[in-house]
Simulated assay, not measured.
Amino acid sequence: MNKKVISKKEWEEKLSEVNISKQDLNKLVMNFLVIEGYQEAAAKFQEESGTSSIVDLNSIADRMAIRSAIQSGDVEKGIEIVNDLNPEILDTNPQLYFHLQQQKLIELIRKGQISEALKFAQEELASQGEENEKFLEELEKTISLLAFEDTSKSPIASLLDHSQRQKTAGELNAAILTSQSQDKDPKLPTIIKLLKWAQTQLDSKCQYPRIKNFVNGEFE
C-alpha cells in the first residue's frame, strides 16, 4: 500500500493553522523551571516574560536543599528543612515519613554503626511496623542487611545504592510539589514523549516532514 505523501509546504501550512498562544508556551517553560528547581532561571524568565508562578520562587531553593541533603545521606537535615518549609507534609504522609526514617536506618548501616542502627530501628521504626504490615516488611528487609558482614553480598544490597537515596529524595520532592499545588513532573518532557509517539504512529501511514531534532525543531 502506497503511503500518502505530505509535502513540507503543505505540512507547514497545516502547522500554521494550529493556534498556540505564547502565554501557554511561557507557562510550560515556567512549569519546567520551577519543578526542576532552576530558581535563578525561573526568576529571570518571570521578569522577562511576565509569566508568574503560583509558588514563591524562594521556596525552590529550600526544595533543592532538601533534595541535596537526602541524596547526600543527611536525612536529618532534609527533615529539618522540610519541617521549616511546611510541617504538615510529613504529618499527613506516614508512608513518606517511614521511608525517610528507613533511609536514615540505611545510612547508619552504610556507616557500619550496627548498634546505633538496631537501637534506631527498635525505637523509631518498630512501632510503625506494628501498625502497618507493609512497613514491617520493608523494615525487616532493611534490617536483614545486618546479616551480612559484607553488605555488598546481600541480595538487597541495592538499598545501599545511590539510586535508593534518589528514590527517597524523589518521593519527598513530589510531596512538597503536591503541597504547593504543583505537578509532580514537568509537562514539557511528557509533551515531547507524546510528539515522538505521534510521529511513530504516522510513520506507518504517510511520508511527512519528521522532526529529527527536538531541541531546535529541525525537520528531516
Rank of each mutant, 00 (worst) to 15 (best):
R165F: 04
L145P: 08
L25F: 00
K193S: 15
I143Y: 01
A117R: 01
A117N: 02
A41E: 08
N132S: 08
K187N: 10
S179E: 02
S68D: 13
M1R: 11
K77P: 07
G170T: 02
A42T: 06
N132G: 03
G50Y: 05
F135S: 02
V215L: 11
Q113W: 02
E40H: 09
S127C: 04
E171S: 10
L15H: 10
W11P: 08
D84Q: 13
L33N: 05
S7H: 04
Q182D: 08
D56R: 06
S127L: 06
I211G: 10
Q71Y: 13
L15T: 08
Q180T: 09
V34M: 09
E131N: 10
I143Q: 05
K119T: 09
Q166H: 12
L85Y: 15
S152A: 07
Q182C: 14
I109W: 01
E140F: 10
K4Q: 10
R165V: 08
I176R: 03
I109S: 03
L202M: 09
P209E: 00
Q23N: 04
S115Q: 14
T92D: 15
L195C: 02
K134H: 09
I114Y: 09
T142G: 01
R165E: 04
E133N: 14
S163M: 10
W197Y: 14
V5L: 14
R210Y: 05
E17Y: 13
S16C: 06
I60C: 12
E48M: 08
C206G: 02
H99M: 14
S21C: 02
G78Q: 03
N213I: 02
V29Q: 00
P94C: 08
A69L: 10
L139V: 04
L139G: 06
S115G: 05
S144N: 05
L15R: 12
L195D: 00
M64Q: 13
G73W: 00
A61V: 14
K184T: 15
A121E: 02
E88Q: 11
L177Q: 09
N58T: 12
E36K: 09
E131C: 04
R210S: 05
L85F: 09
W11E: 02
E149Y: 05
N173A: 12
S59H: 06
E88V: 15
Q95T: 15
L96D: 03
A121P: 00
I176T: 01
T151I: 12
K111I: 08
Q199M: 03
C206Y: 11
L160Y: 08
I20A: 05
A175F: 00
S181A: 15
E107V: 08
S52I: 02
A126Y: 04
L28H: 00
N19G: 07
V34E: 01
Q182M: 10
A126W: 04
L159A: 02
Q122P: 00
R63D: 06
I66V: 08
V75A: 07
K134G: 11
A117D: 01
T168D: 06
E171V: 13
K77V: 07
M1E: 13
I20R: 01
A65T: 13
I6T: 12
Q102Y: 07
T200A: 07
G78A: 07
L188S: 03
T92W: 11
L177P: 01
F148N: 01
P209L: 01
E40G: 11
S7W: 12
S68E: 12
T178F: 12
A169K: 01
E124Y: 06
L33A: 10
Q180P: 11
E149I: 09
K44I: 11
I20M: 01
K141T: 14
N216H: 08
N93G: 11
L136W: 03
S72L: 12
K14H: 13
